[in-house]
Simulated assay, not measured.
Amino acid sequence: MKRKSLQGAACPVARTLDLIGDWWSLLIIRDALEGIRRFSDFQKNLDIAKNMLSARLKGLAEQGILQTVPAADGGAHKEYVLTERGKALQTVIVALSQWGGEFMYAPGEPGSVMVDAQNRQPLRKLELVAEDGRVLTPQDVSTRLGVAH
């Protein structure tokens, strides 16, 4: 069954999910943010079938999330690196990680935590903040039709 495209939706959440909404794509982006660049390293780390990984990498490259570059070691293979568009997804990955850390583990259960690479301390929890500095709750946020940035 072919999935319905959300590419023309007025909602930016729907359009984004159309592009990166499957778990493999998000996990590839997570790994790329951690510095993984080679097909074999993505495949090994994710334990994903090669044909599925190939399709996801190709799609992410076509959408401008990843780009292929020559291998850093001068080898014949290519490597996958995040574009600026791809790097901008780091906030999404951090938000998912923080939500999962809070709600998907039993008390005391070990799990990974994202930390500041410089001081090795956990990141402060992301918050929605208004232009005037107020921390917003779900009740403080609404959606309206407007022009995308």
Rank of each mutant, 00 (worst) to 15 (best):
R38M: 03
T83D: 03
E127R: 15
K44I: 07
W23A: 12
K44H: 13
G8F: 14
M114C: 09
T143N: 04
R134L: 05
Q139P: 01
A148W: 04
G146D: 13
L33K: 04
W24F: 11
D41C: 04
A76G: 13
L96K: 02
A10T: 13
Q118I: 10
L27T: 07
V94P: 00
G146C: 06
A117I: 12
G133K: 03
L19H: 01
S97H: 04
A88Y: 04
P110L: 11
G133E: 07
G133M: 06
E62K: 09
G74S: 04
V147G: 01
P107R: 05
Y105T: 14
V141L: 10
M52R: 02
A61F: 02
P122H: 09
I29F: 03
Q43T: 09
L89A: 02
L145T: 10
C11F: 11
A71L: 06
C11I: 07
P122C: 11
F42N: 00
S5W: 04
T68H: 01
I28N: 01
A72Y: 03
Q98L: 07
K4W: 09
R56L: 00
V141W: 01
L27I: 03
V115T: 13
P138M: 10
F103K: 11
I93K: 01
D41Y: 06
G8R: 10
W23S: 14
E127N: 11
G21Q: 01
N51W: 11
G111K: 06
A32G: 10
D22F: 05
I48P: 00
Q139S: 15
L27D: 08
A76L: 11
R15C: 11
E62D: 15
Q121H: 09
K125N: 12
S142T: 15
N51F: 09
L17K: 00
E79F: 14
D73H: 05
Y80W: 14
L33Y: 12
R30E: 11
W99R: 03
P138D: 11
L82P: 12
E79K: 06
I36W: 08
V94F: 14
T16V: 11
R85Y: 06
I93Y: 00
Q63L: 03
M114W: 08
N119G: 10
S142W: 07
R134M: 03
R30F: 14
S40I: 08
D22L: 04
E34L: 14
Q121A: 14
D31W: 12
G111F: 11
A95F: 12
L126R: 00
K2F: 12
E131F: 12
G35P: 08
L6S: 00
N119W: 10
D140C: 08
L57Y: 01
V141Y: 02
P12Y: 06
R38S: 06
Q121L: 13
I93W: 01
Q98I: 02
F39C: 07
G75A: 12
S54V: 06
K2R: 10
Q121D: 13
L17F: 05
V69G: 07
R120T: 14
G133F: 09
A148R: 07
V141F: 02
L57Q: 00
W99C: 05
G86E: 04
